[in-house]
Amino acid sequence: MFSGLSSRFLPLVRASPVRRLHVSASLRAEEPVGNATSKLSKDQLKKREVRRFAQKKAAARRPASEHPLYMPVDKALRFLRAAEVGQPQSQQTLSVTTIVISERGAPLLSGNVSFPNALKELKIAVFTNDEQQAQIAREKFNCHVVGGSELVEKIKQGQVPLDFDKSFATPEIATLLASQLGRILGPRGLLPAAKKGTVSENLESLIKDSMGTLPFRQRGNNISIAVGRCSFTDKQLLENIVAAQKSVKEALANQKAKKPSLLGQTTLTSTRGPGIVIDFA
């Protein structure tokens, strides 16, 4: 009976290639659908999300000292310095990472931190076609890279290394920057934009304000700020951590969200060392 069916069916399929194509395509499309759908309904998924968010918030409200990996900063530094022993100085960077708990759709936290003990010299890039402004940037502030349209072209071709930490521009070049270098500078947070306050007619006052500050921003669910090196003294490092804490709090206060975000667990870690929970909030 089976052979009879296939013999009756086959000529039909062979006769019309369009139909055969359709049959195989629809089969393939159906297969993954059956496997990928979750067993939970939409309602249940939503409930689960709400529950998890509440759990995260409750965890953030608990004091850091309850965590089994909690240590006072000086003791933590002793462990981190021990873990980094013998490594090259330049690779012994200590950083503070904070988990941010925010509602979905809340704007990402970002801000500037000014350290009393600087990690490294800040490198600034200035984009302008105005010769006068460029002169000021070069002479008064000793900026790392200064230039106009020709610099934009060079960066686009990869001739100028992107080793600066901050960039500023004048309004006449800002649109050119956004269209030409948006793809290159944007992901690194280096693109000057009026919204960020890095585009202005008067670059002098702008650079003066941001001299000695380092930008930071939220990536995913956390903020990570490099605060020092193992060779710093405990006092220097503590001062830097306090400065970082202050600016994160400030960014949190300025955030334009419906409900304020929370800071969760904060860890102090080094390049190769363990992450140790510290008091930050």
Partner: peptide, 20 residues
């Protein structure tokens, strides 16, 4: 020696400089 023992040595001798 560096990997197994030096961290502990540094931990109990925070004032000393160990260079590799």
């Amino acid at each position: 020696f560096w990997h197994e023992y030096m961290p502990t040595l540094q931990f109990y001798n925070p004032g000393l400089q160990f260079q590799v």
